[in-house]
Every structure is written in C-alpha cells, then in structure tokens.
Design a protein around this nucleic acid. Structure first.
Lengths: 203, 203
DNA sequence: CTCATTCGGTACCGATTGGTATCAAACTCT
DNA sequence: AGAGTTTGATACCAATCGGTACCGAATGAG
C-alpha cells in the first residue's frame, strides 16, 4: 500500500502556498477586496501574477481561500468558544475572542469577515455576498449552540436562541468596526463586558 | 443694503446641485467609496464628469459632501436623540434610530458612515479616515451628553460616560453591519432592545 | 450689440485594473 | 537520453480608473 506520491510530475513550485496565502489574507484584511489590487497581493505574496493564477484560480477564489485561512487562524476563537460548557461561557469567550482578534498586535485591526467587503461595486459583489454568508453561518452556529443550552436547561425556557445569537454577532461586528477605527483593546474589552451584563441567568 | 445676487454672471448651471448630491450619496452608500466609480456617480447624478468636477471638486470632496448630507438626512436621528430629556431616552432613541435608518425601504441598507470605507487601499485611505473621524465625533457627542447626565444626577455617580458612549456606538455599528448583510428591521429592533436591558438605572 | 464669464458636452490623457499568451526552465516517467 | 508535464518570468491584452483640455453654448454687464 504505497500510495504516497512524494513528488508530483512536472516542475515543482518554487514557493510555499500556505505562506503566500497568509500574506494574501493580510492584504485583504487590511485593504479589503476591492482595495487590494493584484499588484498589492502578488508583491506581498512574493510571487508573480502567473503563479498566483495557477495556484489559486483568480482574485475571487484567492479571497475565498484567504477567508478560509482566516477562519481557521485569527477567527478560530469562534469555533473554540462554541465548545465552552455553558451558554454564558460561550458568549463570554466569543466576545473576548473577538476583542483580542480585532486588536492583535502585528495584524491589521478589525475583522476580515466584516471589512473585507461590506459595500462594493459590481466586481466586488460576490466577495461581499461571501462574507455576508460567512457571518450568517457563524450566527447560525451560535444559535444552534444556544438552542442546545435551552434544551439542557442551561438557559431559561422560553429564551430565544436566535435573538441571543444575533445580539452577540451584532456586538462582535460593532467591535470589529470600532477596532478598524483605532479603538484600543482595553476600550473594547470594556464594551464586551458591558454587553454581557444583561445575559440571562442560568435556569 | 441690497447685497442679494439673484443671478451670478455666466451661464447658469443646468442641474440641481442638492439633487445631484443626494444621488451621489446613495451610490456611495450602496457601493462604498472605492466601489463607486466616477461613471457610476455621474450617471446616477445625471450630469457629466466635467460638471461634477466644477461643482464638487473631485471624488474625495464629493464623498465628504455626501457624508455631510447623510449626516443631516438619514443620520439626523443622532442629533435628535441627543436632545432627549434623559440618558435612557437618549440611548433608546439613538439605537432605535440606527435600526430604522439602516433598514429604510427605498434606501441602501446599512450605514454610509460604516460601509462607505471601512478598509481601503491607498487611494481610499482619506475617505476611510474621514469616516473614522465621523464615528469618533458622534461618539464624543454621546459621551458629552452622558457626562451631562451624570452631572445632573440622571445617571448614577461614578458612571463612565465614555464607556456608555462607546458601547452604544459599538452596538449601532454592529447593527449597521447586520443591516448591510440583510438583517430585517424586526430582527435588529430585537437586538437594540436587548442591548438596553443593562442600561444603568437613574440615580 | 460686444465682451467677459461660466457651464457642460466631447474627446482625450496616462496610469492602473484583472487576466493571459508565450516560452524557457525544471522536474518525473519510460 | 528523450518524452511528457508543470512552473514561472516577460510581455502583453482590452477595459476601466480618476481627471482634464478644449471649445461651443448660455448667460450678465457695459
């Protein structure tokens, strides 16, 4: 059972695709989809246009792959928060994570999932819709998690899981906007703390 | 003292500048600064490039003037909220206003002050900074209003007016992002209501 | 009327946009 | 070694970007 292919045929690529994608992600994060030109992207990635098209398809696919990497990297706090034992801890971890991720030193401020493409002209429409779906998906996961918490008695019966999820996502989105505008981590942590003061008590 | 100039010398302009600015505002609102091309703008304004440059300077100045118009039009709820008699009413009017303004039928969803330019490349940097300053200015006004409320005993002593202001602005920004993603007015009203549950009681 | 002044339509500018054709270099397979 | 396959550098594409020169059209001043 020797199915391993150590070297695919043809000339091997002369760059690390993961590393290149990381750089592309940061450019999109900082400048947005429309604000990031292919010249910006490829020069940050350290490769030529040709290599980028061969490896990633086109600008739109590169953006989607950068978003995936973002989800598993800087935004991984989302998935992590979902595994907290109680609804309150989920909510706290989610907001605290969003504060930290949007104000991480050495990274662009704000959230790629928000400022990557919030409003756009025709060419940026697909990217905008991709991000909108991305936010909705994470909202749904929060809602499912809170629904489970209601079922488990961790939240009072009659609690609306969808409302809690949307509330948290709204605050996180606001935090992202604030961070993009230069708000500090301490400022935003105060906001996150305040946003959780009204969290429903456990059953 | 007859200083009125009914007709300035030269050929009179053949369009209504206010009306043209209104259309430009909506294009920026919907597509963002970088996503709105001069062709998009001038064709929506119903004038030629030449007329636009003569009347408004350039794209950047047009954007600033569109933002002014936005402030006095769709975003006028902000100034109105500030004149409510109590801090709680100010906060309620502010969030309710933001919900209505970001989901107004017949207008683009979301907020020009957020999605107009949240992240941008080099050419959009000035617009982005303009919007950031715009948000900061409104946050400061809220803070001043709450400081006054503390002085008047309308808020408990020791309350941090800056935190309350930033909290409200954060929620409003989040509402704008949600609206841009297609959230309905009812959804967002629920979020706004929930965000005010933890509002400090009057002294 | 003539002159000065302003407006606005056409036609254009250089620069940049996202995307490709071409072809030599670098590799695996037989 | 020779054939087949993939990468990547150069050089290019049409389209669009924001912005402007030019000049006739339309007005008030004299």
């Amino acid at each position: 059972m020797e199915t391993r292919r150590k070297a695919p045929i043809g000339r091997p690529r002369g760059f690390d695709a993961d590393e290149a994608l990381e750089h592309a992600m940061r450019v999109f994060w900082e400048q947005g989809y429309e604000g990031a030109s292919l010249t910006d992207l490829t020069s940050a990635m350290g490769i030529t246009r040709t290599s980028m098209y061969a490896a990633f398809g086109n600008k739109e696919e590169l953006f989607r792959k950068a978003l995936e990497r973002y989800t598993e990297g800087p935004a991984s706090y989302g998935a992590r928060a979902m595994r907290e034992p109680t609804a309150r801890q989920v909510a706290t971890a989610f907001l605290n994570g969003s504060v930290r991720a949007t104000t991480r030193p050495g990274c662009p401020t704000g959230c790629l999932g928000v400022q990557g493409a919030l409003a756009a002209g025709d060419p940026g429409r697909p990217a905008r819709d991709t991000l909108s779906a991305w936010r909705d998906e994470h909202t749904s996961r929060l809602r499912d998690r809170f629904r489970q918490a209601v079922d488990e008695g961790d939240l009072p019966p009659g609690t609306d899981p969808g409302l809690l999820a949307r509330y948290l996502m709204t605050v996180a989105n606001g935090i992202a906007v604030q961070a993009a505008g230069g708000a500090t981590r301490d400022d935003l942590q105060g906001v996150a703390d305040m946003a959780l003061l009204n969290w429903p008590p456990p059953e």
